[in-house]
Nucleic acid binder design. Structure first.
Lengths: 222, 222
DNA sequence: GCCCCTGTTAACTATCCGGTTAGTTAACCC
DNA sequence: GGGTTAACTAACCGGATAGTTAACAGGGGC
């Protein structure tokens, strides 16, 4: 009885990937259990070892897909010919959109960060570096156009990616915290978050100097 | 040879806490192994169950300490009577200093976030909420003094905490990435990071406006 | 019919790992 | 000394869990 047992070569593999992404995002690599992934995908556990060689192989495949897709979405921006601040805006918005489209991405990324990239293979690390490379090109465009001051790309990246990741990955926790501290409004819209991130980045980038208010003097870096 | 076997009631417990913090930060709750923690602390495994009831109990104790200390360090700022922007600056700097003083804190926090706070007990969650409460008071001070526009505290928080967490927790990964992409300078100083975060926060806060949809215009500031 | 290939399954194994337990040691108390 | 307690150890246990295997279904090519 039971299962329709239909012919289904693709579905099994895809269902495994989807189930595993959810499991890995929610529990991390070590917290994720292969039996649970198989159950979630309604697939025999052995299929994991048939389609991917191991738990680690399955995980790596997910990471590879995720980063490759995000990097691909970002890639065309710097060469688009748009104004630099529009490019930056698109960079942030695209990143935020990817996080919505692939809801497991933020948590997995954060975890992989904390893990020191223990599970990352070379190509995935390159894709990750690609995100930074795109941003670096946008900043170079802006500087060339006289619109941006010069800024450390990595610093700009963490001020963009940090808030977005934190916002996206903290959704479940925020729901729980909201119970305890009902006064706090912990659920701004995604648009509000991206707008704020864009505003903050542009404010610092277009305002040469870097630190207004109490000018602790500019960066005297050699 | 062998252990001096001296009378040492405190050390054992403390060594366990230190070893466990390192292990939990590097591997996460599920990735951390009690045997490894015990070995790292050079202590018999059973002592974990003697001093803390369980692996989870040990973990909770670490979380409690960490958040309580950070919240305590932040606590006095809003009532200090300093100018609001100085308060905000101190908020960021204190947070960054805590991350240096307790190097395992960022990774653990990030992981707990991604985990949806599964291991957090009520008091720890309150301490976490306390961080937001402090910031909310600082922003209220700034608004009262006419220095800050009104801003969503949670949005401000993620733009501060996000970059700091990402920077601190990504240190190991950055070291590895640096090998592959040697051109990129991935190691700004902690001061540069805090300065940038402060600048970005103040820029947005002192510039009322917040973030209308089309602020493509530059900021013709002071 | 027969072979072979891909996809699939149920049952099995080996190992790892959190937790327990019975016992030891040393200090402190009277 | 006898009794009590905190701190500690070595050895063990059982369940969870990643990974394996042998058998099988069905389809397409010949």
């Amino acid at each position: 009885m039971a299962a329709p047992r239909a012919r289904a070569p693709e579905p099994t593999r895809d269902r495994l990937l989807a189930a595993a992404a959810a499991e890995f995002a929610a529990r991390g690599f070590d917290g994720a259990k292969v039996d649970r992934i198989a159950a979630r995908a309604r697939v025999n556990k052995a299929m994991i070892y048939y389609h991917f060689a191991s738990k680690a192989g399955l995980y790596r495949e997910i990471l590879r897909d995720l980063f490759a897709e995000v990097a691909a979405a970002l890639e065309p921006i710097p060469a688009s010919g748009e104004a630099p601040d529009v490019q930056l805006r698109r960079f942030v918005e695209t990143l935020a959109a990817e996080a919505i489209a692939r809801p497991h991405f933020p948590a997995i990324w954060m975890r992989e960060m904390a893990e020191g990239g223990r599970h990352l293979d070379g190509s995935t690390m390159l894709a990750m570096g690609g995100v930074l490379a795109v941003l670096r090109r946008i900043l170079a465009n802006g500087r060339a156009a006289g619109r941006f001051g010069d800024a450390h790309p990595f610093l700009v990246q963490i001020t963009i990616v940090g808030p977005l990741l934190l916002f996206a990955a903290s959704a479940p926790l925020r729901r729980r915290l909201g119970h305890l501290v009902p006064s706090a409004d912990l659920n701004p819209s995604r648009e509000a978050v991206t707008a704020r991130v864009i505003a903050a980045s542009l404010a610092v980038l277009t305002d040469r100097a870097g630190a207004p208010a109490r000018p602790a003097r500019r960066r005297t870096r050699p």
